[in-house]
Simulated scan of single mutants.
Amino acid sequence: MTQGQALTIEHLAAGYGKVQVLWDVSVRVEPGEFVAMIGANGAGKTTTLRAVSGVVKPTAGSIRLGGVDITRAEPSQVVKRGLGHVPEGRELFPLMTVLENLELGAAMRPEALAAQRQTLAQVYSLFPRLQERAGQLAGTLSGGEQQMVAVGRALMGRPSVLVVDEPSLGLSPLMTQTVFEALKAVNAEGVSVLLVEQNVGLSLKLAHRAYVLENGQVIKEGSGQDLLNDPAVREAYLAL
């Protein structure tokens, strides 16, 4: 493994209790890369991201973030090391305002707290609607607006690597496009992105590289364009 890699997952195994979900997952994200993980429901994509963020503890393998071993680290330590996680289902605090939810994203990192005002302005530039809704309770927002808050909250921690789980879930095509354009812009600013997403076509169009997971293992890897043109991928995930 080279020190230059933003995120490296090697031979990862993990699960929940006696139920093993991941058997042998190896994924790398280079600095500035946009990497997608695709696969059917139950393939292990969400579990992989949860293991990266420390929510699920691996039973084998290793995870390194910016060259530092975080395999057994607690979620708070992983955040301090520079990981931002946009979880499936958003997991906002519904009785807190949009601004309060966003500010929580900076709470774990001193450097993020020091730059909180600047980062908030950047989040608002990505999602102007959040500035309009800053004093509104997060639980009263539309699904798309809540997804904007979830992405914005992760960005408030000024991460070097952003892992994003199913951002288009339940969103309209227009709102999906808005969220994906924001992720593309964040990546263009130098933040490495690891995306899990059921919208395979859109994901592969944006991704520099991509992985296909099946039954807790990586079965295919290539550039986003190569996998988009792969007959097996098109038949299995694009119904083409």
Score class of each variant (00 low, 15 high):
Leu49Ala: 05
Ala51Arg: 08
Val52Glu: 03
Gly54Glu: 03
Val56Arg: 04
Lys57Ser: 14
Ala60Asn: 07
Ala60Val: 02
Ser62Leu: 05
Ser62Tyr: 04
Ile63Ala: 05
Arg64Tyr: 03
Gly66Asn: 07
Gly67Asn: 08
Gly67Asp: 00
Val68His: 03
Ser76Gly: 00
Ser76Tyr: 12
Val79Pro: 01
Lys80Pro: 01
Lys80Val: 13
Arg81Cys: 02
Leu83Ala: 10
Leu83Ile: 11
Leu83Glu: 03
Val86Trp: 01
Val86Gln: 01
Gly89Arg: 00
Gly89Met: 00
Gly89His: 00
Pro94Glu: 04
Met96Ser: 10
Met96Cys: 06
Met96Arg: 11
Leu102Met: 12
Ala107Glu: 13
Met108Leu: 15
Met108Asp: 06
Arg109Lys: 15
Glu111Gly: 11
Ala112Tyr: 00
Gln116Pro: 00
Arg117Trp: 03
Thr119His: 05
Gln122Asn: 13
Val123Pro: 03
Tyr124His: 13
Ser125Gly: 15
Phe127Asn: 04
Phe127Ser: 05
Glu132Val: 08
Arg133Gln: 13
Ala134Cys: 01
Ala134Ile: 10
Leu137Trp: 02
Gly139Val: 12
Thr140Trp: 04
Ser142Leu: 11
Ser142Arg: 07
Ser142His: 09
Gln146Asn: 03
Gln147Pro: 04
Met148Gly: 07
Val149Ala: 07
Ala150Val: 08
Val151Pro: 05
Gly152Tyr: 02
Ala154Met: 10
Leu155Lys: 04
Met156Phe: 04
Arg158Phe: 08
Val161Gln: 04
Leu162Ala: 12
Val163Pro: 01
Val164Pro: 02
Val164Arg: 02
Glu166Val: 05
Pro167Arg: 09
Leu171Gly: 06
Leu174Asn: 12
Leu174Gln: 14
Thr176Phe: 00
Gln177Phe: 02
Val179Ser: 05
Phe180Ala: 02
Phe180Leu: 14
Ala182Glu: 03
